[in-house]
């Protein structure tokens, strides 16, 4: 990737950052209450047949060094706060990928009492990968597409989720009841 030296130093720095991040992004994985179907397929991407690492993508454990948060699950009440905290610990710029039907909308569990339903009820989501579960190729495809969009500047940052309204979220109704 050629550095355009006529731009300001700030822009140049941005370009370097984007380049480094896109060419070697670090992913952190978070399960917000999934059945493990998606998690296993994510883990499978590391195994020899799919080998996500050959794209320069590294799946590692610490949010503090991560660029991309890859999430599964319909967000159980217990997982919600942890999910937020993991996100908060990530340095900017950061991106969120929702993997699987549950992460998209709550999936088969829509309407169940202990779930919030969909990662984007809690965090701004940059990419959605549908499936139940999506196969490893689909996961890789989604992640790579996101990275390409970031690199080309086509990626649009999502709006943050709407704050919970009265009667819509479990915590509000239940707190009032007690």
């Amino acid at each position: 990737m050629a550095l355009n030296l006529e731009k300001s130093w700030q822009d140049a720095l941005e370009q370097i950052k984007t380049w480094a991040r896109v060419n070697s992004p670090w992913l952190v994985h978070f399960n917000s209450g999934s059945c493990n179907g998606c998690d296993i397929e994510i883990l499978a991407t590391l195994t020899p047949r799919y080998d996500l690492e050959r794209f320069g993508v590294k799946l590692q454990g610490s949010p503090r060094h991560a660029d991309v948060l890859i999430c599964t699950g319909p967000v159980t009440r217990q997982a919600r706060d942890r999910l937020l905290r993991v996100y908060e610990q990530m340095p900017e710029p950061k991106f969120v990928v929702a993997v699987g039907s549950c992460a998209l909308s709550g999936g088969a569990f829509q309407g169940c009492y202990n779930i919030v339903g969909g990662i984007d009820e809690v965090l701004p989501v940059d990419a959605y990968i549908p499936g139940c579960p999506p196969r490893p190729e689909a996961i890789i495809d989604g992640v790579v597409k996101l990275l390409q969009n970031i690199q080309s500047g086509k990626h649009v940052r999502p709006a943050p989720p709407a704050p919970p309204s009265n009667g819509h979220r479990a915590e509000n109704t239940d707190e009032e009841a007690a």
Partner: peptide, 8 residues
């Protein structure tokens, strides 16, 4: 436990 408790 409870992380994966969905109320199934």
């Amino acid at each position: 436990l409870g992380y994966v408790h969905r109320g199934i």
